[in-house]
């Protein structure tokens, strides 16, 4: 893309309404192709990966304009290779960064050239992708798939404190899950695991049903989701979710799309997800 930025839009913005602020410019250290962003409500911080320079950037929650990050994790000790998705545990103050078949865990307040405080490894043939954390039950959820051959995704559920070659506590995966090839995004909200299926995945199990689906962190095996919300069509084309986040206060889910529809942010009501979990 021509212009790296983090644009902040008012919740009720619609159409071509301009963002209320932008984080942009050389000072920000931002690059293009940010495939993760986390807003840490407890500490009022924004955390993003910087894949080109192998770094994790943390900004003030109110950052605006050409503002430097307040912390940067970066350097030879970090073991960062191609940081892409990440998750933040604001309760236990940790940042989780999957890299191939490992999850690197950093102290949230780490800065500079620091080693991870622990590393979780799975077998070499598994590629870990998108993490989520449930601090109340000390659970780490990571989407993953075999790196060769079979492409179906699974959701691996670990003890949050797992390290080394620890095995998952349980795994959700299989044809009934319809996880397919491409888990576009994953969030853990209380004990729900919320996952985006994408249309442009190489072989979504159910291409007629591009959706955000929900499992419990207690689920296990080849189980279909508890909820699956189809995001409908815009101008006759199924919505292709690239990413999403949750707005618990307004019982909504906010979806970002790149191609279908092009360069858009959509908000959906999803009260079922938040019922009884405030």
């Amino acid at each position: 893309m021509a212009h790296p930025q983090i644009a902040a839009f008012a919740r009720l913005a619609e159409g071509g309404k301009a963002p209320v602020r932008r984080i942009e410019g050389q000072e920000t250290l931002l690059g293009r192709a940010s495939h993760a962003i986390v807003y840490d409500e407890i500490h009022d911080e924004i955390v993003v990966p910087q894949g080109f320079a192998q770094a994790i950037l943390t900004f003030r929650g109110a950052a605006n304009g050409q503002e430097r990050p307040i912390r940067v994790i970066h350097g030879s000790r970090t073991q960062l290779k191609d940081p892409d998705p990440l998750a933040v545990d604001p309760v236990n103050n940790e940042i989780f960064v999957p890299e191939d078949n490992r999850v690197l865990v950093f102290a949230r307040e780490a800065e500079g050239d620091v080693a991870p405080i622990r590393v979780l490894r799975v077998p070499d043939n598994i590629r870990l992708r998108i993490p989520g954390v449930f601090p109340a039950q000390n659970l780490l959820v990571v989407s993953g798939s075999p790196s060769q051959g079979e492409r179906n995704n699974q959701l691996l559920i670990f003890d949050r404190r797992a390290q080394g070659d620890a095995r998952p506590l349980r795994v959700i995966g299989g044809p009934r899950t319809t996880l397919g090839d491409d888990v576009g995004e994953l969030r853990v909200y209380h004990d729900w695991i919320v996952v985006a299926h994408t249309v442009t995945g190489k072989a979504p199990a159910d291409p007629s049903w591009p959706a955000v689906s929900v499992w419990s962190v207690h689920d296990e095996g080849d189980v279909p989701p508890r909820w699956s919300m189809n995001l409908g069509k815009i101008d006759g084309v199924s919505v292709d979710v690239k990413s999403f986040d949750l707005d618990p206060k307004n019982r909504a889910i906010v979806v970002a799309t790149g191609r279908k529809p092009n360069n858009s942010v959509l908000t959906y009501s999803f009260p079922e997800l938040f019922e009884g979990r405030d």
């Binding site: 644009a7 008012a10 409500e41 990413s243 986040d245 970002a256 790149g258 360069n263 942010v265």
Partner: peptide, 24 residues
């Protein structure tokens, strides 16, 4: 003003300010 949204691969909701954060 152009929004300059470019193939956003991520999105976050800023619960404190009621804002949607969209990186390119």
């Amino acid at each position: 003003e152009a929004l300059m949204i470019g193939n956003p691969g991520a999105v976050a909701y800023d619960t404190k300010r009621g804002q949607i954060l969209v990186p390119n």
